[in-house]
């Protein structure tokens, strides 16, 4: 894994340890979709990498654009550092679903105040 950035004793970032002729292929299936890593190809340059990517990853299923990038240029956080994505505190305040209780309160309050009109 060597050559990563170390914080304390932990390596949390490294470059992908990949031969130089390996290109990562990202495929966009439909215009509004994100590009998704679908695999790699071996090629001496970007042009050939795109040709091989088309032959290998776009034979039958939909594809509108392909990206290729030298895999060895990709930096990644390490699996060891996966904990850093775990929320340190309760982040329920970031989710709409957390506010349902409040909506229920409003709704029941509204029903209470309109009870007479219903009858």
């Amino acid at each position: 894994m060597g050559g990563g950035v170390t914080v304390g004793a932990e390596v949390w970032e490294r470059r992908l340890d990949t031969p130089r002729d390996v290109w990562a292929v990202f495929l966009q299936a439909r215009t509004r979709d994100p590009h998704v890593h679908v695999g790699d190809v071996h090629a001496p340059d970007a042009e050939m990498a795109l040709v091989l990517a088309k032959e290998n990853y776009a034979r039958r299923d939909p594809c509108v654009t392909l990206w290729v990038v030298r895999a060895a240029e990709i930096h990644t956080t390490t699996q060891d550092a996966a904990e850093m994505f775990e929320p340190a505190i309760d982040k329920s305040y970031r989710f709409g679903g957390s506010y349902r209780r409040q909506q229920q309160v409003y709704r029941s309050a509204w029903r209470l105040s309109h009870r007479d009109e219903d009858q």
């Binding site: 990949t18 031969p19 390996v22 695999g39 790699d40 190809v41 071996h42 032959e55 290998n56 034979r59």
Partner: peptide, 23 residues
Amino acid sequence: AKVQDEVGHAMLLYRVAETLGRS
């Protein structure tokens, strides 16, 4: 098309084996 798929599978698999340390 089928034969082309098989060769394509070999390409994908050699790449996976390569990530384990063989060229």
